[in-house]
Write a protein that binds this DNA or RNA. Structure first.
Lengths: 227, 227
DNA sequence: CAGGGGAAAATTTGATCATATTGTGATCGC
DNA sequence: GCGATCACAATATGATCAAATTTTCCCCTG
């Protein structure tokens, strides 16, 4: 929905001479990660060429990239759709996210200045407001931004790629869960993370990150199994 | 080198009407993982269309997928090349591989029948022969096949994807190391893995896998830092 | 005579290619 | 050494072909 709108926005925003296939990739990526596309929903090339106003080659390339990312799945009959997670998928993700993102948090801890920690705390404050307002879209974006900002300081591009790949996979399902249960019940261990960061205590930061992840994912697992 | 040869082979082998972009992807993926392409070597679209005998659209799609896999890197000026690992990259990979692949081993242990363990042991025997013969290409393929076969029994597609992504990233560099030091010095904890599998001891399987990974990766790290 | 099953046509979507356009790097002249 | 021009490679589009799904219509059966 409103795919054309997004294109217009991306044209206005300060993008200078980025190739079209990159634009399409970023646009679709955001739509998937923040749940604008429903799990199970089919994604067609021609539909995107029409709504985005670009040729089919850039669209095809963007779709291929997203398939390799695990953000889209190839359904055999050369149909592509947004993946729907199973219970066992969530279990694997809990394990992988805790392993990788705890390590990213640990590595980031000693690299962050006071100002950078403050910036992180400000993101969390805005996040609280979205939860209070029941703004699901805002919550998804800011929650991702919080973790992304933290992990960026770990200076570990490969681990970062792995983490991003996982976020991309559970994004659509998380949206569904939030839509069903609202934002009130969402856990938020971010206060603990920020506090541990100020103390420069890598172990506590990693532990708090793991708890944040586990609570969020368990909630999702529960919601998916009762669907 | 010999890109046309590979195409011919893939046409002969039992592939029935797989789309060309999938073929190209598989071909390039194998060439990267098993080190037929040297790190730092530029990859051009037109070069591949000529050597593979297909149009540029399938080639473009395959390259995009491999970039998302981390198997190729986009060098900014719309140049694409095989990545060259840095020390810190190897450090991240050691952590991620041990975390993910140990878990895969653990999960696979109780799922494997006696016959399947025997098949794994046979792969390892063939592997020993390639080491004795100094057959680097054969070693890379069989080593991968050993781990891949083991992990396939874990029934964990997401963790499997993550592991494959990592293998794809260090493949070219591993080839370089093997080429420099030969196959004699390569570690092989596979005997321990098989033995622990026969005992149905998940913890020992995981431990042996972690040791196998650590030894191999440390060797690679040492070789890369002295280059 | 009505309802359901199946086959064939039509529409929709995907895959590939050929071509035009644009941007980048290199070379040659000043 | 610096700047303009030239050549080449990548990007993007539209056209064309192939495959799959859906729809429709006819025939058979109850």
């Amino acid at each position: 929905m409103d795919l054309i709108k997004n294109k217009a926005v991306s044209q206005v925003s300060g993008d200078q001479k980025q190739p079209a296939h990159e634009q399409v990739y970023q646009t679709l990526r955001a739509q998937i990660m923040y749940g604008d596309l429903v799990p199970g929903q089919p994604v067609t090339i021609q539909g995107l060429t029409d709504s985005l106003g670009v040729g089919m080659t850039p669209v095809r390339e963007a779709i291929r990239r997203l398939i390799s990312d695990g953000a889209l799945v190839f359904q055999g009959n050369r149909r592509v759709s947004v993946p729907l997670l199973k219970d066992s998928d969530v279990g694997q993700m809990i394990f992988a996210r805790i392993a990788i993102e705890s390590e990213l948090s640990r590595r980031a801890t000693l690299n962050m200045s006071k100002a950078e920690i403050d910036a992180l705390a400000r993101i969390d404050q805005r996040l609280d407001r979205t939860i209070a307002d029941g703004d699901v879209g805002g919550y998804l974006r800011l929650n991702h931004q919080f973790h992304q900002t933290l992990y960026a300081h770990a200076d570990a591009p490969i681990l970062n790629d792995l983490a991003e790949s996982l976020w991309l996979r559970f994004g659509p399902s998380l949206r569904v869960v939030c839509g069903r249960f609202g934002t009130q019940s969402l856990p938020d261990r971010h206060k603990d993370i920020v506090s541990a960061l100020r103390d420069q205590d890598p172990q506590r930061v990693a532990k708090a990150t793991a708890q944040d992840i586990e609570q969020g994912m368990e909630l999702m697992a529960g919601a998916l199994s009762t669907s």
